[in-house]
């Protein structure tokens, strides 16, 4: 019979064949199975620009620090409204070209936030560009690298109409007569990032996260009805602070301050709530604010605005969930008319 101690041929052959058999069973067959997916009905394919953006994402190896997978455990609820499913990756995880394989977008390290839903969470193009130029301009504690090679310094007089200039705070870039202009690559990358949105499943997202710890089961992101049950400060940090900053002071030249703002401190919160729901583009010297109506519930908006109206020296009455509900309906009617 097989005497592995003396027959090198049998030893190597057995080790090789068993390993190949196990590998086929545990890796190759499941892999074949996993690539047999179809897209979700509402899922949009990547546009040509978004695909170019994905290639930059891969070439800068953003996967080293950013995951793109919402795990089916409650703590990942903050990165998406439902756990990721194989179809989510239908368009993005395709072989790039002859030389490069399908990108490893799922990632294994979350040094930075998960990006599955970044297009919904942070829809502002201005924010993304400034953040890529220098992350610490918008998030002072960030450890992400700057990507200045995706931008060019151009003489103010030579900036073309179709070129996108970045409003960089003076502490970071201060050369009068020179503007920072986004390159095509930067625009592609931002296009790709903005396209990262979780597709709603037909019939709505069934929240099938595995509840992990009691605390989360009771204090989830949208479960509570009462305003008092939601942490306005925390919600503000997750949703708004990227632009308006934790201290409510915004970033001069990019994002307006909330501390001392007339709109925020107005006794009647209607304008404030409308802006959160619909977005805002009335201030020429600041970036565009995207709408948050689809992303936040009435209770969450109430909690956030209440936090804004009672922090950083602001002093205005609290906002109730009903107020938000009323204004949301009003806005809807206006749009329908």
């Amino acid at each position: 019979m097989l005497n592995f101690h003396k027959e090198h041929k049998n030893l190597v052959l057995t080790a090789g064949v068993v390993f190949i058999a196990l590998s086929i069973m545990i890796a190759i067959l499941p892999a074949f199975q996993m690539q047999e997916t179809e897209p979700i009905p509402d899922q949009k394919p990547l546009t040509a620009n978004e695909r170019k953006g994905l290639e930059i994402y891969v070439s800068e190896n953003c996967m080293a620090c950013h995951t793109q997978q919402v795990r089916n455990i409650e703590m990942d609820n903050m990165w998406g409204s439902r756990p990721s499913i194989p179809s989510d990756y239908f368009y993005s995880k395709k072989r790039l070209d002859v030389w490069r394989q399908s990108p490893s977008l799922l990632g294994s390290e979350r040094t930075g936030p998960d990006l599955t839903n970044i297009g919904n969470r942070q829809p502002s193009e201005d924010w993304h560009l400034l953040h890529l130029y220098n992350p610490r301009a918008v998030v002072s504690e960030s450890v992400m690298p700057s990507y200045p090679w995706l931008f060019r310094e151009v003489d103010s007089t030579l900036v073309g109409k179709d070129q996108k200039t970045i409003a960089v705070p003076k502490e970071i870039f201060n050369q009068p007569g020179t503007k920072i202009v986004a390159t095509e690559d930067a625009m592609f990358l931002v296009d790709y990032l903005k396209s990262l949105k979780q597709t709603e499943l037909p019939g709505g997202n069934v929240n099938d996260f595995i509840p992990a710890l009691k605390k989360i089961q009771t204090g989830g992101m949208g479960g509570d009805k009462a305003t008092g049950g939601l942490d306005g400060e925390n919600l503000f940090k997750q949703t708004c602070a990227a632009c308006h900053q934790d201290n409510g002071k915004g970033i001069t030249g990019a994002f307006p301050p909330l501390a001392g703002s007339d709109i925020v401190n107005d006794k009647d919160p209607e304008m404030l709530i409308t802006i959160v729901l619909q977005g805002y583009d009335a201030l020429p010297n600041y970036g565009v604010m995207p709408p948050f109506g689809d992303q936040l519930t009435d209770a969450e908006i109430a909690a956030i605005t209440t936090h804004e109206r009672s922090s950083w020296g602001n002093d205005a009455p609290a906002v109730k969930e009903e107020d938000v509900k009323k204004i949301r309906e009003m806005v809807k009617n206006e749009l329908n008319q």
Binding site: V12, I28, A31, K93, Q101
Partner: peptide, 25 residues
């Protein structure tokens, strides 16, 4: 011998679209 097999399986493209790539990864 295992690593030779491994690097071939790791780089062959036929089953690496979508999450097939993740299984192999």
């Amino acid at each position: 011998i295992w690593t030779i097999v491994l690097s071939i399986i790791g780089y062959l493209p036929f089953y690496q679209d979508g999450l097939g790539e993740t299984v192999i990864q």
